Amino acid sequence: MKIYADIKSGNCYKIALLCSLLKIPHQWIAIDILKGETSTAEFLQKNPNGKIPLLETDDGRFLSESNAILNYLANGSALLPDDVFERASLLQWQFFEQYSHEPFIAVARYINVYLGLPESRAKEYEALQTGGHNALKVMETQLEKGDFLLGENLSIADISLYAYTHVAHEGGFDLSAYPAILAWIKRINSLPDYVSMNDFPSDGAT
């Protein structure tokens, strides 16, 4: 199995973290977005949408979109509940991540970390703060009720939202006002086989 990705991307890091937690063997193939490596003819044959992460299965099929990949890889594990309502609740949080969280927190981080906060995007960066904090407030309210987003058990809903939340400060979001989120981050950091963005190998088989 091959994973085409950039470990600095939260969407890609989700996959790295899940593979580590579930000890899924794979080959990590580093892709540099800023160098246009997702726009080459070779890559576009694999994913016409030209985005990472991208999973290539052992039999040569391709799957894109980070949360779809998480659902595929977590199938049969404790991180993907069997109960129909719980699974729908999990998907609810993954849709929340893509529509209410990532467009603010991840984009602000991209402008700051990847682009160096250019003056031309300073107003956009500031405008993203309100939406990001709204998403964090929703998470805080939920995590005051239990250790994880679905209650007392870790699921891929947590992995989906952890990826960009734990580096939200890199997008200008101060997490000190969210004690439940900080405690949740600490719980995930303490998981057996946890791997961070910094200590994950940039390339090679794992």
Rank of each mutant, 00 (worst) to 15 (best):
M1R: 06
I3A: 10
Y4D: 04
S9W: 01
S9M: 01
C12S: 13
C12H: 00
Y13K: 04
K14F: 09
A16R: 09
L17C: 06
L21S: 00
K23L: 09
K23F: 01
P25G: 02
I29N: 12
A30N: 08
D32V: 03
I33F: 05
I33T: 03
G36Y: 02
E37D: 01
T38H: 01
N47T: 07
N49Q: 13
N49G: 01
P53R: 06
L54M: 09
T57A: 06
D58R: 02
D58K: 04
D59N: 15
R61N: 10
F62S: 09
L63S: 05
S64I: 02
E65F: 01
A68N: 12
L70T: 07
L70E: 07
N75A: 15
N75Q: 15
G76Q: 01
S77V: 07
L80G: 07
D82C: 07
F85Y: 13
E86N: 13
R87M: 11
A88N: 11
A88V: 11
S89F: 00
L91T: 12
L91K: 08
F96N: 11
Q98A: 14
Y99E: 13
S100D: 13
H101E: 12
E102W: 01
V107S: 07
R109A: 11
I111Q: 03
Y114F: 14
L115I: 06
G116W: 08
S120P: 03
R121T: 12
E126V: 15
G131N: 08
G132T: 12
A135Y: 08
K137C: 07
K137M: 13
T141H: 11
E144A: 12
D147A: 13
L149Y: 07
L150G: 04
E152Y: 06
N153G: 11
N153E: 15
I156S: 04
D158P: 09
I159R: 09
T165K: 05
T165A: 10
V167I: 12
H169L: 11
G172P: 14
S176V: 09
A177Q: 12
A177S: 08
Y178Q: 04
A183T: 05
W184M: 03
I185G: 03
R187P: 03
I188D: 04
N189A: 10
S190W: 00
L191W: 04
M197S: 00
N198T: 10
N198A: 14
F200E: 03
F200W: 14
D203W: 05
D203I: 10
A205Q: 12
